Simulated assay, not measured.
Amino acid sequence: MNLPTRDRGRRPAPHGPGSRLDEHLETSRLAQHQADRWLISGSLLIGTAALGFFGLPLFLRGVWLLRKAARDGLTVRPMLVTLIGYLVIIDAAINTVGWALDTVANHTLLARVLLNGWGNMFDAGYFWHYNELLIGGAAGPGEKAMEVGMILTVFTMRIAAGIGFLQMKRWGHQWMIITCWMGVLIWCVYVFNMTMYADVRFAGVVLPVVGWWLYDIFYITPFLAIPYLHSVNREIFSD
């Protein structure tokens, strides 16, 4: 039977397994993209430290969307990969923003309020002889070397590794392992530096040693990723 002129050259819409797979993958991609928009927005706000309370609801909304997509049978990124990747990025961003403020924006009103207020509450290293060194900001011994060194190396590397990890790239997984172990070294060095100059950093603050440990616990959370990174099936990550 001849088709009408307007229908010639057209192919009937496919209804086989291939089309259903394509539709499933496209739906999964859109669901993953929608969740990531909320997760990224929340992470950006949490990473500034000052706006963390506004970012947390957005981040939790993204987690809920991702879990809903997984329950609906869509092919989305594993939840553990998502949580570890974003946690590492947030950890690096908080350090980078805080230390960048202290290094290059130490005369701004924002830095004076946040860093001096932080020093008055927890760590007098951000209150003691502020803006009296060649490079302004905190004057605690060892602080400036760690700020400059870590911003230019580990924390930028960690953000890049986290992005690759969330994209399920093998190089992202490998660099997550490297930067998380480097984070263990950083944490040990920083705690030692704090302890050596305890008379400077914990004197006259509202919440001394106990308060510092309460907020510092957050910085050991990327360490919890190390067992997973070493034990996960690496085949789930692609080149």
Rank of each mutant, 00 (worst) to 15 (best):
P4N: 09
R8N: 09
R11M: 15
P12T: 15
L21C: 12
E23P: 07
T27G: 05
R29T: 10
Q34H: 00
I40V: 11
G42V: 10
L45R: 01
A50P: 03
F53Q: 11
P57Q: 14
L60I: 10
L60W: 03
R61C: 11
W64Y: 08
K68Q: 12
D72N: 15
G73D: 04
L74Y: 02
M79R: 13
L80F: 03
T82W: 01
Y86S: 05
L87V: 01
A93I: 11
N95T: 04
G98I: 08
A100N: 05
V104A: 09
H107D: 12
L110M: 12
L114E: 13
N120P: 00
F122W: 03
A124R: 07
A124P: 02
L133V: 09
I135W: 13
G137V: 14
A138Q: 10
G142C: 04
E147K: 07
G149I: 02
M150K: 14
I151V: 04
T156V: 15
M157Q: 15
M157N: 15
I163P: 01
Q167N: 01
M176V: 06
M182C: 15
G183D: 08
V184K: 01
I186Y: 03
C188F: 14
F192R: 12
M194K: 14
D199E: 12
A203R: 04
V205F: 03
L207W: 12
I220R: 07
P227K: 01
Y228W: 05
E235R: 05
E235H: 06
